[in-house]
Design a binder for these strands. Structure first.
Length: 614
DNA sequence: TCTATATCACCC
DNA sequence: AAACGGGTGATATAGA
């Protein structure tokens, strides 16, 4: 394919940057140097950027030049920092490695897996190894040393800068060797679209999510005390907690004292402590209800204190694009405000003069299922009003005049059945529990779905047959998955929707970023966007337009609906109603703790925000 | 004391 | 035979 590439491009630049990301790792990167080699001419460019600021990028970036790198978001972030243009044609070999490996990972030998630490599964070294290129151990140890030097930050001596540039060049050499090995396996058009997405990823990773950094810092500083106090409040009533969670022996004693001998056990024989089990028993045993609430509170508070916030008050983290087998992003839950429980989102706050919008496709996967299968009834129910009530009306479970408000509970049951049951393939017992209905109702609704939307179910069966017979899946934009015998039918039957949902999100991100919308982050079927307050309406329209266009591209014409919550206007905070009770409880504890420390140390008292905002 | 596994929680 | 798709991460527990 190198020949083909050579016929398409005047230059094929293999590019790498070294950069400094600050102590927290949450600040926008500061470039140290750049090295680029043009495979076609052999020309190499070495540029120090720590102490010099070239106005223009030293290599060509037009559409006759191919820009090859490994996790291009990092390189593009450096372009943004240098205020350079963004390359027109990006080929990201890490992403292409992920494409080629997707579904084949499992077939890799055990020894091979062992050789690579889990976090390095898609590292440059792992990729080289996979394509038969080796790199000696001495180079690997040098790599750590150089990485530390970059992480240290300046000032750098001339000698240090020279060694960083040399090191940078070794990675460029690796790319030069890698490209001819990988290119025969790379499909150019889909790869270039993925590369284009990586530029959008760079813009989003750099922008980050605006948060109330001061408040987050106060939470972090008091985190251990907050969780301890949460437990302490109920310790006397429920002596079941060991350190931070249930202690099996204590729990056994507690159950014994309440005469609950036949308590359910896990497959391994441990006493079950899941909220499902507790919910089942709470109906009959009141103390279990209280225990459940206590435990949920304790467990929900986990996973917060690692949130990565830069010195400019922005939450930044790697989006890890193409991390899942459906091609979704897989950002770290611990580092992102959107990772932990919903209450953490109340930390999100637009900067002065700004507002935030959360835009999502409504019923994205359900809509995709309708249009992909071509099921006329399903399409009509998705397009007309509410697909779940539409379904309920067809099977005469709800009256024709039912609305979201008038039949809230029934609608939710139908939604659970259509989501969990239909798209994820959950069976009646699971649907019944999740939707708070009887098993026979769940079974009835699921059965009726099959009768009502025959065409969808036929299509679903074809998809499964294709997976089993052909062994490979592929989206309309070229993300692929090698299906193995180990993959379940439920997994297979959802893949088309989730993988195309991921493609749709990528298209929307590209369009929005390229049209100047300030996207802070994608959230699987949503975009969080910021804008100056006076521009919020036009930005809302522009974002919705991008998302609708993206859906139309993926569905081949029709559009999915896009929902937008009322904007969060500075100085208000973002909020998610699911987390507001928890937020109130935790901010309450925080203010108690800070009041206590004022009494002991005489520090000034701080004022806490309440949860309700415009 | 360390590591691997099981269980559980959260997100879309 | 048949209890949910895709993820990340924290904690307890068992085993070395």
């Amino acid at each position: 394919m190198i020949d083909r590439l050579a016929s398409l491009y005047d230059r094929i630049w293999c590019v790498d940057f070294e950069y400094f990301t600050g102590a927290s790792g949450a600040d926008a990167p500061k470039p140290i140097c750049m090295v680029a080699t043009d495979i076609l001419s052999g020309e190499t460019v070495r540029e120090r950027l720590w102490d010099r600021h070239p106005k223009r990028c030293p290599i060509s970036l037009d559409d006759r030049s191919l820009y090859v790198s490994y996790y291009a978001a990092a390189e593009i972030t450096c372009h943004i920092a240098m205020e350079w243009e963004i390359p027109a044609r990006i080929l990201d070999l890490q992403v292409e490695f992920r494409v080629l490996a997707n579904g084949r990972d499992r077939t890799r030998s055990a020894a091979e897996k062992l050789a690579l630490k889990s976090g390095e599964r898609h590292s440059l070294l792992a990729c080289m190894f996979a394509f038969g290129l080796t790199s000696d151990a001495a180079a690997a140890s040098h790599k750590d040393e150089m990485r530390e030097l970059c992480m240290r930050g300046g000032p750098y001596s001339s000698h240090e800068l020279r060694s960083i540039v040399d090191y940078c060049e070794t990675d460029v050499t690796a790319l030069v060797n890698l490209l001819p090995k990988m290119s025969p396996h790379v499909e150019l058009a889909p790869a270039l679209f993925r590369g284009r997405y990586m530029a959008a990823v760079a813009a989003m990773e750099r922008r980050g999510i605006p948060v109330d950094a001061e408040l987050a810092e106060r939470f972090k500083a008091n985190w251990n005390d907050i969780t301890e106090r949460l437990v302490a409040r109920n310790r006397d009533k429920f002596d079941v907690i060991g350190d931070k969670d249930i202690d099996q022996r204590k729990f056994a004693t507690w159950l014994e004292s309440h005469g609950l001998g036949g308590w359910p056990r896990t497959p391994e024989g441990r006493l079950s402590t899941s909220s499902n089990t507790l919910s089942d028993w709470a109906k009959y045993v009141p103390p279990i209800m209280q225990l459940k609430e206590f435990l949920q509170t304790v467990r929900r508070t986990r996973l917060f204190d690692k949130l990565r916030i830069g010195s400019d008050g922005r939450n930044r983290f790697l989006l890890s694009p193409f991390g899942s087998k459906t091609g979704r992003n897989t950002p770290s839950n611990a580092l992102s405000v959107f990772g932990p429980a919903c209450w953490v989102r109340s930390l999100i706050q637009p900067p002065p003069g700004y507002a935030l919008l959360y835009c999502d496709w409504s019923g994205q996967e359900y809509g995709e299922a309708a249009y992909f299968s071509g099921d006329e009834r399903m399409i009509a129910d998705y397009a007309n009003d509410d697909p779940y009530l539409g379904f309920g009306k067809r099977i005469r479970l709800v009256p024709p005049y039912a609305t979201k408000k008038s039949h809230k509970k029934l609608r939710n049951q139908l939604k659970v059945a259509a989501g969990l049951g239909v798209l994820y393939g959950a069976q009646p017992p699971t649907v019944a529990r999740a939707g708070d209905m009887t098993e026979s109702t769940a079974a009835y609704v699921l059965r009726e779905h099959r009768y009502t939307y025959r065409k969808f179910w036929d299509w679903r069966q074809q998809v499964i047959d294709h997976a089993r017979l052909v062994g490979e899946f592929r989206t309309c934009l070229g993300w692929t998955w090698q299906v193995t015998g180990a993959d379940t039918t439920t997994s297979i039957s959802n893949w088309m929707m989730q993988a195309h949902g991921a493609e749709m999100l990528r298209v929307a991100c590209c369009l929005a970023i390229e049209r100047g919308v300030e996207v802070c982050t994608p959230v699987h079927d949503a975009l969080l966007v910021q804008a100056p307050i006076e521009e919020i309406e036009s930005v809302r329209l522009a974002t919705v337009q991008c998302m609708e266009e993206a859906s139309s591209l993926i569905l081949g014409g029709p559009r999915l609906k896009v929902g937008v919550d009322p904007p969060t206007v500075s100085p208000n905070r973002f909020s998610d109603e699911r987390g507001s009770a928890m937020w109130d409880q935790l901010t309450g504890i925080l203010s108690e703790l800070e009041a206590d420390s004022v009494r002991s140390f005489g520090r000034p008292e701080q004022v806490l925000p309440s949860t309700s905002f415009g």
